[in-house]
Nucleic acid binder design. Structure first.
Lengths: 216, 216, 216, 216
DNA sequence: AATGAATGAGGTTTCATTCAT
DNA sequence: GATGAATGAAACCTCATTCAT
């Protein structure tokens, strides 16, 4: 789930030069990185355009405004998270393993940035709404994967637990990428796997579940 | 630890008018709120000055620059967190209870904002350094309170575990304040206490420790 | 004179698609409307192209630049006014009637827009020169139609009087179309015919001429 | 009425340097000239600021935006016209003489520009509304001065006649200032007084009134 | 000490125009 | 001949900062 580390179709570094779709992809790609790492306000459209190797005016041409580009980033991240998340019940231990992998990819991988982006606000109504809905939708997916059943009465706690797991992921990714705090910033899978597995286990599988070291 | 809900010394709403120290306090107080909630770039010095009921030029007079004010906020938050944290070993269950209370105070309380501030960056070298050191120092304090002993070999995991606890706190506070994501945004102590207690318990007290519902 | 409500040659709504001349006509037609109503600067070439159902780049292809298109509009309006104006002496009362009709057609008709266009400036030397010459030429025509004879000494006053008549027409058209000022904006022939006839009469026929209600 | 050629209080060419009110006056003064002669869109805020000898940012500081400055120009022109117009019935022949003087001042005087400004549109709702209302209010004043009585039934024609007089003034001023059309552009009082007097006379005093040459 | 006027750098956006297809 | 992608200049505006009172 989450990021399967599937090679992206738009990974090309050189654009063909006159392909609108490719240009838009390059812009979104560059923008997402900047927005996630530097925040909305600190990012300038000139930086984004330069990163994408594209003229600045094209941002307005294709996305109306800086906010429009941000919204496009949100939508795309939302869609990708959606398509990468299992829709039904999943095996708990493999689910947890995936969550851990997602966090551990930071700070170099592209996937954790997608989560970080969901914490950034542009002040734009639409974008903030998408952000909130994406996080809530993602919560539900995670809860379902963990065996949550909407028909059972009083299942709110399970949703909340799933959300705490997401919060933990977000917090860890922030400390690793944005703050660069040691020791968590330079910790690898061997260091993080154990404790993170316990946290996710106790949140998603309940106290009774085995909370030992996760499988490698 | 953290915020003891001690009445702040600068709670006064009307400044004396010609008291440099009071003016500086009012500025830091107002700035910290804005920086924490809106981020560094989205906050304007005019907003801060207006909130503090002070002329804008005084920011530069007392703090050199906007970044200087930000750095002062960092320092002050760092100091406050320091003075509010127990320096020695502490009772695990009461420690956890405090951590939970700190998170639950959000989004209205003043305390969680101090944590949020630690995630904000101004791009300034000094401020970011203070931020990193504060978080690392805070990590150590928490580990010590949880019984960590620097003399024991291979204690890195315990530091990491404390940091994961901090990450969880930060993540939850962000979801509650900045993103406003449901259900966690409107959850109260009764909802959050249980799961959060389990997470903190398994991280700080180890798997063997009792991870049931925390004392009220 | 002026607009004889002759059916325009380019009234077709669908262009043949690959007819350069038709494309140019459509562009000038659309441009003239926009320039006259919105002014030169407020009009964008994209609006014009969209109105004409034509690709934007064709404006530069056929007219070199936006100013070139403006100049073409001026020239065309100049020519049309020229071909629609009687070259010799005309019956005063029917002449006046035509002037009134021209004004009254506003704000919906196409004719007053041609006059409005003559008041718009693009800052371009050439276009402004055409404008000035057109207005002066038009003045002369009107004076001739009113019985002016270039051979008579000291005939400047008659030219001036003809120009005042044109000024009145322009002023009224502006108030009706651009400013939308009441009551003149919604006045019809029955309201305007009388006073306008008097003004034109006293200017073109002299104080001794009958200045009563114009013929219907 | 209209412009009494009273020496303006803000005629100073050098601002005192640190006087907010003077700066605002200088900006409005410079802006009004530019807007009236070049139009709203063709005028840049930098030009205005340069003309006023002031930093560009002060436009936004004092008037919120370019449109705000335009609106301020409209309001000021509206007020000045208002205060310069007699509120009651006036002697017809002296009234006409004033109207003529107002027109003749162009193209060098400051007064005709105020009228021209009333024909410019910024696209802004508020400013355009002010413009319309000013013109309509000015119409009423003129009608009253010409002996119009609101109690008499069916007096609409008199309003309309007053508006035609205004239209003529506007048209003449445009031809003189904006278009520079000969011979009207270089005509003086001796040339314009006669015909203009006749037009105003026949519009405001009726056909029976003496429409000879105005007194010098 | 404090105020508010003034400044300059930099940000986003618009728009006429040119370049490949 | 026609299209749409791409470009660069310039416009308006914001904002941290400095200056004069």
């Amino acid at each position: 789930m989450l990021a399967e580390t599937v090679p992206h179709a738009d990974d090309e570094l050189v654009r063909s030069g006159r392909d609108a779709a490719a240009t838009q992809r390059a812009l979104v790609r560059a923008a997402r990185r900047r927005f996630a790492t530097d925040g909305y306000r600190a990012t300038t459209v000139r930086q984004i355009a330069a990163d994408a190797g594209v003229n600045v005016a094209l941002i307005n041409r294709y996305f109306e405004s800086k906010e429009g580009l941000f919204e496009a980033c949100m939508k795309r991240t939302s869609n990708e998270l959606d398509s990468q998340t299992p829709t039904g019940t999943s095996d708990i231990s493999s689910l947890i393993e995936r969550l851990i992998a997602h966090v551990v990819n930071a700070p170099d991988g592209d996937d954790p940035l997608q989560l970080l982006l969901l914490l950034r606000s542009s002040g734009d109504e639409n974008a903030d709404c998408i952000r909130r809905r994406t996080l809530e939708h993602f919560t539900q997916r995670l809860a379902v994967a963990a065996g949550w059943n909407a028909d059972v009465p009083d299942t709110a706690p399970i949703l909340l637990r799933a959300q705490l797991a997401i919060a933990t992921m977000l917090g860890v990714v922030m400390l690793r990428t944005s703050a660069g705090v040691q020791p968590v910033a330079s910790a690898g899978f061997d260091d993080l796997g154990g404790p993170l597995g316990q946290v996710f286990g106790i949140l998603l599988a309940g106290p009774g579940a085995p909370s030992g070291t996760p499988p490698r």
